[in-house]
Amino acid sequence: MNGNHYNLNLKDILKKVFFVDLIQGLFITFNYTFSKTITLRYPDEEKWIPYRRFRGLHTLNRNKEGKELCVGCELCQKSCPTQCITVVPMQDKTGKGIADRIAYRWEINLLRCMFCGLCEDACPTEALKLGREYELANTSMQRSLWTKEELLAAQEIPVEFDGGVIVRARLERDDKGLKVIPDMSVQKRWW
C-alpha cells in the first residue's frame, strides 16, 4: 500500500486553512446573484410554448372551410394501445363535416393516455393532432374526460404558431383549478 496517499502537501494545507474552495464556490453564487436571470418564472409570469412536434392534449381540427375533418372512422380508437378513445360515428347530411359521416361521440380518457401519438398517426384525415396543451392536472377524475366539442374548440396556442419560445403568462385560479394563460405577443428565447 502506498502511504503517500495520506500525505498532505503544504499547498493543500494552506488551501484548507484559508477556505479557498468555499470562497471560489461562493463567488460563483455571488456572481449569478447579479447576472441576468434564466430561470423560467412558470407559472406566475412565464410559460414555455413547446414546438409543434410536442405531444400534448389531443385536438380535433377543421379544414379551411371550417368543416370537421374527423369522419368518425374509429381508426384512432383502434390504434390506441391503452384504449382510451371512444368514437361513435353518425350520418350527417348538413355539411358539418368533410363527408356525410362525422363523429357523434369522440371522447378521450386522458388518465389512461400515454401520449404516444399512435392515434394521430392513424388518423387518415389529419383531424386528430396531439396539441401543445400540457397543463392537464386537475382535482376531479371527470375533468380528465375530454369530449369532441372541447377538443374542436379553438386552441389557445394556434397551430400556425411555431413554438419553442417562452411567452409572458399569468396564473389564474378558479374553481376548476389552475390555468396559466399565455400572452403570445411577448416572447423570448430561453437561451
Binding site: 374509429e74 383502434k78 360515428p89 353518425m90 350520418q91
Partner: peptide, 9 residues
C-alpha cells in the same frame, strides 16, 4: 346499420 359502428366494436 349505416355509420353505426365498426365490426371490431
Amino acid at each position: 346499420y349505416r355509420y353505426q359502428s365498426r365490426p371490431w366494436d
